[in-house]
Every structure is written in structure tokens, then in C-alpha cells.
Design a protein around this nucleic acid. Structure first.
Lengths: 336, 336
DNA sequence: TTGTATGCGTTATCAT
DNA sequence: ATGATAACGCATACAA
């Protein structure tokens, strides 16, 4: 019984009834004889009928589909968020498109066009922040959307869910300082990204509060591409830059930094304390017990779904969503 | 200019032309006056028009959408595959739905229904293997699909792309045996899964070739849920099961095993050699240099996309796709 | 060069 | 209780 998909029409012909009777029987409408309804349902099952949601959506205008646009699902940070978003969306009978942008502006633009073209009911996007035009286009287009993980401070109109990056950066840095580290290296992410800016704020505030100077040579930007951190760390070590603590923008960078240290026969935490951000350890068990900042990706993801669902269901609501999920320190064995 | 999405009709009204003139102008058909075309394009841009691909797909029957159904995107193994699939699909102007099954049979069934209902052009699925009915339904339904990473030996009709699990299991085990390990613990995945069965075959073959006995007490099944491996490892250590080498079904399990060993103050590779499967290290830099078996997830993913595209474009082709991608050993610092 | 009619699969409305 | 018809947005065939 392979080949073309079975349609309502096929069932109608087979049953000798009208398309519309079939449709309503399958939808459990009251005005269809119970016997007819049962007969039709049996037939549908037998013929392997699966409703064409696309056709239906043409009428209703809703596709029950949400686009999730992120840098890279292979990065555990986003992989976890996408998983949580999918799980939450599925509960509400939504399906998700996943599109990666590699944090590239043009890919982001194409992703947005694709999503709109596919008539998604909403978009959850972690913006590349190479510019705001893509997001402005979204806004203008009227598709409900919410930013996740990053925000535009200059664009108060864009709804977002982020974690408390400033607090996270503060906590991590303060922990190192309180443990006696006077020179804390910050391996930060690209500074165009709001979370990098805000974690840096936290880093600075922790220094100021402790009366320590913020040293520009200890604030280094590393790219997202694997291996970049290795390069940077090697150089810092070779030129004997002085530091004893390391705060990394995320766990992946922290791991990589720790690896380089071990290559130079340094021990963590004996010689260097290292702390990351993301707390991926709570999801994937890695034999390097990295201290980190937990940013509740599960909560962020769920909120993002709730927000877009709210916007879908209340198109006229003017409610603003500027949500900041709390962050907290998770100490393991890489700091002392 | 927020609100409803702009349609061809909106443009038509605004331009004082028919819907169809607009449609063809935007598609660069030859029979539209160059001036009109330009005017329409400018208008479309100004009004933020984005074509409704869904409506079009109702006519063409094609949605340019592929469903990717896997256990869990948050697992780096699947995260990497999904990323590669998306990348490859995007090149061909396809968008992907991602649905997680948690390896649950009913969630798998719902995932398949959802995918078919959304009219996807094809499905790439890593089956839960709790039964073959779901896949048989797919087959019956006529949606092009291909299995990825797992296969059904009893169902030669199902196309698949897998890696050479038997060879991988053999290579990993043989490497440990050749290094002098006489008792190799196999922390295997759920045995219902074909890749677990086939890696086990390799494990056994390596033993037989070396004249070593296969000891049932050294073959242990661990669940996918995080923490499961910890439990199992603790028990094995506490009851002083004798082994010096560990071959793990995947890197995540290997990491977790290594962690438990370190908790008991054992050293890797001095006290125990550990080898995993997946070679995630090549993508994510982790400060624990795990030896592993590379299964070319990038290649598998690309082939999976190529195969379903072939099936989409040649609906009448009877070509069978039973592809086995080579595996190879990648030695790092966790074995000796 | 442009407009009109039709159909994709479904559902809502209005008949019968 | 069931059937006929229109409509969703677009693309195609054909008419003007």
C-alpha cells in the first residue's frame, strides 16, 4: 500500500460519503452518527490516513510550528536549549524547525526568511548580533518572536529571555578573587554579543568591589571556532602573562584552556583555578569537574516557549517580555 | 507596519494589478514588462513581502522540509548529526524539523505522525528499535525515509546509513587486548539497538582471534540516562570485578566511567585503559584525552541527506541504500 | 503583456 | 445526520 498519501477524498470515495462528513467524523464532531463515525475511523486507520496539517494550516493561518534559530546545535549549550525548547513545544503540540546561523549575519537573514516563508507561528532566536536589521525585519513582519540568551540594549522593543549574565560574571570572578587570585584572566566571547558584554561588566564590578585594578591585558576575546582558545592560551603562557585564575565565557572554552594548561604540565586547581559558564556538567558527565555558573537553560527555554505561545494566542497583547533568569555558582574541583 | 503577513493579494491591490501578475513578476517570468517587474519588486520589498511557501507546497506537493527524528539532540552524538544534516539540507534549500523521541516507542510513533502530517518530503530517523512497526508504517505510508545509525537486520527493506559498528568494536577491543589487557570490560548500550549488538560482535571477534575467552560478567548494559553508568561502575568496583581495560559504547559513557575511576583514586591510563566510541573530542575540546572510535558522523549525515534527496527526486527508483561508513581508531591518552 | 479560472487538502458555513 | 460550496495563498494553464 505504498505510493501517494491518503487524503480525505480517498476515504470519501471508498466510504461513499462526502469529504466533509469524513473530516468531521475524524474530528469527533457531534453531528455525525456514531456508527458512521466508527466506520470512518476504522477505514482511516486501515488505509493509513494521516491528516495533512499543511492544508489545514492554510485555512487556519496557523502551522503549529516554531522556528528555532541558533548559532550551532552541535554546541552543547545550544543543543541543550533546542532539546528543552522542542520538549516544551511538543507538549503544546508544536513542532520546531531548527536552523543554524554559525553566528553569520547573512545566514541569519536567510534563516529568518525561510522561517517566515514556512509560515511559522513564532520564532525563538539567539541573534548573531552582527546588526539589528534582521531582528527589526522580524518585528516589522509581525511574526511573534523572542530573543533567547542575548539581547539588544538599544532596542527596548525586542522581547527577550536571558540569564543574569552580569551577576554570573560577577559571581565567578568574585569567587576567584575571594579565593586569593589577584590576577584573573577573562577568556571572553565576542564582545558584540550582549552576554559577553554583561559578563564583562560583572567581571569588572567584582574587581572594583575588591579594590583590584581591572587589567586590560587580562581581558581576551576568543572566537567560537574550536581551537581558537588553544591558540590564545598558548600565546599567553609563552609570553608569561601573569595570572592564576581563569574565568571563561563558557564551559567549552574553559575545557580547552584547562587542556592547554595540562599540556604545559600545569595542574588545575593547584596551579590555576578555572571556572566556566553554562554548567554543562549537569547534563553531560565529563571527567573534569569544572566549576561553572549555572544559567538554567531549561528554564530559559521553557520561558521562551511560553512567551511565544502567549504572543501567538494573544496577538493584541502589548505585554513586554524582558526576562532575566537567575544565575548561580556551582563549585566543583577546578577552583580553589 | 506590523500585523498580518503581506500576501500577493495585498501587493496586487496596492499595485492595481492582478495577483497573478505579481506572482510571475516576483518569479522573474519573461512575459512581464521590465518596468512593471521592477515596480512590483520594489513594492514587495517595501511592504516586507515574504512568499508563503506553505501555500505553494499545497500545490506542488513538496514542502522542502525534512524531519529528523532522533533520541535526544542534547546528546552531542545526535547534536553533531543534526547540525550536519541541517547544514547539508540547507544547501539544497531544505529546512529540517527536529523531534526527539527519548528512545521511547510511543514518542517515536507520535513523531512520525507529526512529520507525515506536516507533509515533510522525507524523514531521517534514528529508530528507537523497540519494535519495527513504526518504521513499517512509514514504509507503508510511502514517505521517503532512511535510518541513520541503526538498522533492522530482519527488515532488509529499510534503507539505512550506519557506521561500521562491528569493525569499530573489533578495533577498540583489539587495541586493548594488543596492549596487554586480558580482561576488557564492555560498557555496552541497550542490546535491542543494532549498533550495540554489532559493537558486541566486534568485541567478541577480537577476543576469539586472540584466543581469549569472552566473559559474560564483563559485558554490561548501561542505560542512556545520565548517572546510570556511575551506578554500574561503582558496583563493579565495589565487588572487585577484575578488569583493566574498558571499552564503552560511546564517549559519554566512557567519560562517566573515567570519572568514577578517578573518584576511587584510580588513574587512567596507568591503572585502567579506557576507550570510547564517537570521537566527540574531534568536535568539542575536552581536557580528558579519550581514545575513541571515529564513526564519521559528518559523512553519515551527509549521505543520509543525499539518500533522501535521491528518493524525493526519483520516486520510482528501486535503488536500495544499505550504507556502512568506515570506522577507525583514534588513539589519545586514555589507553596504553 | 496582463487577467481569469482552477485546484492543491482541509475546514467552516450554510443548506438539505 | 449528511452534503455542497467557498475559502485559505499560491501557481499553472489558458484566455484576452
Amino acid at each position: 500500500m505504498e505510493g501517494r498519501k491518503v487524503t480525505l477524498k480517498d476515504l470519501a470515495v471508498k466510504a461513499g460519503l462526502s469529504v466533509n462528513t469524513i473530516s468531521r467524523a475524524l474530528k469527533d464532531k457531534e453531528d455525525i452518527a456514531a456508527s458512521t463515525r466508527q466506520m470512518i475511523k476504522d477505514l482511516a486507520k486501515e488505509m493509513g490516513y494521516v491528516g495533512n496539517a499543511v492544508a489545514g494550516s492554510l485555512r487556519s493561518g496557523l502551522t503549529r510550528t516554531i522556528a528555532v534559530i541558533v548559532s550551532d546545535v552541535a554546541n552543547p549549550h545550544f543543543g541543550i536549549m533546542v532539546k528543552e525548547i522542542e520538549k516544551s513545544a511538543r507538549k503544546h503540540h508544536y513542532t520546531i524547525f531548527v536552523i543554524n546561523t554559525e553566528d553569520d549575519y547573512e545566514m541569519e537573514e536567510r534563516a529568518i526568511y525561510t522561517a517566515i516563508g514556512k509560515n511559522v507561528d513564532a520564532i525563538i532566536i539567539c541573534p548573531s548580533q552582527r546588526g539589528a536589521d534582521n531582528i527589526r525585519f522580524l518585528q516589522k513582519n509581525g511574526v511573534p518572536f523572542v530573543l533567547i540568551g542575548r539581547r539588544f540594549k538599544d532596542e527596548p522593543e525586542f522581547d527577550y529571555v536571558i540569564c543574569d549574565d552580569a551577576k554570573g560574571g560577577y559571581l565567578a570572578t568574585k569567587h576567584l578573587i575571594d579565593s586569593g587570585h589577584k590576577r584573573v584572566l577573562f577568556l571572553n566571547g565576542p564582545i558584540r554579543i550582549s552576554s559577553a558584554q554583561e559578563r564583562l561588566e560583572g567581571y569588572k564590578r567584582a574587581h572594583e568591589e575588591s579594590g583590584l585594578p581591572v587589567l586590560e591585558e587580562l581581558i581576551v576575546e576568543v572566537g567560537a571556532s574550536a581551537g581558537d582558545t588553544r591558540q590564545v592560551m598558548k600565546q599567553l603562557i609563552e609570553q608569561q602573562t601573569a595570572f592564576t585564575g581563569i574565568f571563561a565565557f563558557n564551559d567549552v572554552i574553559a575545557w580547552e584552556a584547562a587542556y592547554v594548561l595540562s599540556k604545559y604540565s600545569f595542574k588545575v586547581p593547584e596551579d590555576y583555578s578555572v571556572i566556566g559558564f553554562d554548567n554543562i556538567q549537569s547534563r553531560i558527565f565529563i571527567p573534569f569537574q569544572l566549576s561553572s555558573v549555572s544559567n538554567s537553560k531549561g528554564k530559559m527555554s521553557k520561558r521562551a516557549v511560553d512567551i511565544v505561545l502567549h504572543k501567538i494566542n494573544h496577538p493584541d497583547s502589548k505585554q513586554k517580555f524582558n526576562e532575566i533568569i537567575d544565575t548561580k555558582l556551582v563549585l566543583r574541583e577546578s577552583t580553589k
